[in-house]
């Protein structure tokens, strides 16, 4: 522990620094002091509610009577009962087809929306990174979708997607894209598309802005050099831009992914109760608050947490997200 090296330094510089263990110890102490406020804040604001929810998932708690919750083990997750006739019954979240449908809906939604947002976000970021007149206004304009509160934009789109007096049907009809008015949010075939359109529209700016911040930290002279060498712009993008912007991109993707996997309010306003778009969070809410199954809803939340954790770990490993810094 006495020879904790600084991140990144290599060669002579590192060797030079490792000698000063006093300095290192001071740095380490400073590091923990710097971490403390953040950790304490998170422990209070997140720790307690998380522990509570996980605890309730192992009880028979009802929202009408939280203090009277009794421990029932894993019954909310999986309960195997053998009837007197010898038939075996499976009950609980893991045997609930509605839950697995929600898992599938959520994953499909998350993968599709994040993929579209990444591509569009990259395009928008590249455009904004270029120098052109009116760039300031364009940047403000693309942020508008992100700036509108979700409940408002959901309602706005619900209005625009309305089958009778919605403007989307009107435009599509005029352009000859559809032959008759479509009930976007009602029909099982289009409900997911409607949700995807709105989500991609709303969150692409988030992606674009984070990627843009990454792009702007790339030193300009790299591009100069590539230009002088006559490298094709597309090649520059794949060989220079993408690798350099990758850390920022990976973080943006991971946060979008976490958000998408937990998606709630958009679907709750736009297509509530539609079986094709019911996600894990919507199902959890239904059980937690609408139905008298608080414990079951807590179990769903906990499972949602575990599923996201697994996906994240896979992503971190496969995507080789580098925690240690350095390139």
């Amino acid at each position: 522990m006495t020879t904790v090296p600084m991140s990144g330094p290599s060669g002579a510089a590192a060797a030079d620094l490792t000698g000063r263990s006093d300095l290192q110890r001071q740095r380490l102490r400073a590091a923990w002091m710097f971490l403390a406020p953040m950790l304490i804040a998170l422990a209070i604001v997140a720790g307690w509610p998380l522990v509570r929810t996980i605890y309730f998932s192992f009880t028979n708690a009802s929202l009408n009577n939280l203090s009277g919750a009794e421990w029932i083990g894993f019954d909310n997750y999986l309960q195997i009962r053998t009837l007197s006739s010898g038939r075996v019954l499976y009950r609980g979240l893991l045997a609930d087809p509605a839950w697995w449908a929600a898992v599938w809906n959520t994953i499909r939604f998350a993968v599709l929306s994040v993929a579209f947002e990444t591509v569009f976000g990259m395009i928008v970021a590249l455009v904004l990174n270029a120098n052109f007149r009116g760039r300031a206004l364009v940047r403000a304009a693309i942020l508008i979708p992100w700036a509108i509160p979700t409940i408002v934009s959901a309602k706005m789109w619900q209005w625009m997607l309305n089958d009778q007096f919605g403007i989307i049907n009107e435009i599509a009809l005029n352009l000859g894209l559809i032959s008759q008015k479509i009930a976007w949010t009602a029909s099982p075939d289009t409900a997911m598309i409607a949700v995807l359109i709105v989500d991609v529209w709303k969150t692409t700016p988030f992606m674009a802005l984070l990627i843009l911040a990454g792009l702007q930290m790339i030193p300009g002279d790299i591009y100069e050099a590539a230009k002088i060498d006559g490298v094709h712009p597309i090649k520059v993008f794949w060989k220079v831009t993408l690798p350099l912007v990758r850390p920022a991109l990976m973080v943006a993707v991971i946060f979008r992914m976490l958000d998408a996997l937990r998606i709630f309010d958009l679907i709750y306003v736009l297509t509530p109760n539609n079986a094709q778009t019911k996600t894990m969070s919507v199902l959890a809410r239904e059980n937690l608050f609408d139905f008298d199954k608080f414990a079951y809803g807590s179990a769903a939340s906990t499972m949602l947490f575990l599923i996201i954790a697994v996906i994240t770990i896979v992503y971190v490993v496969v995507g080789r997200v580098n925690f240690e810094g350095g390139r």
């Binding site: 309305n162 089958d163 009778q164 007096f165 008015k181 009930a183 976007w184 949010t185 009602a186 029909s187």
Partner: peptide
């Protein structure tokens, strides 16, 4: 009834009704 009636709540029906449709 319009196919979209499967997405109608009170206000959507009233919208169609009140525009004379």
């Amino acid at each position: 009834s319009p196919p979209g009636v499967l997405a109608y709540q009170e206000e959507e029906s009233r919208g169609v009704w009140q525009t004379g449709n």
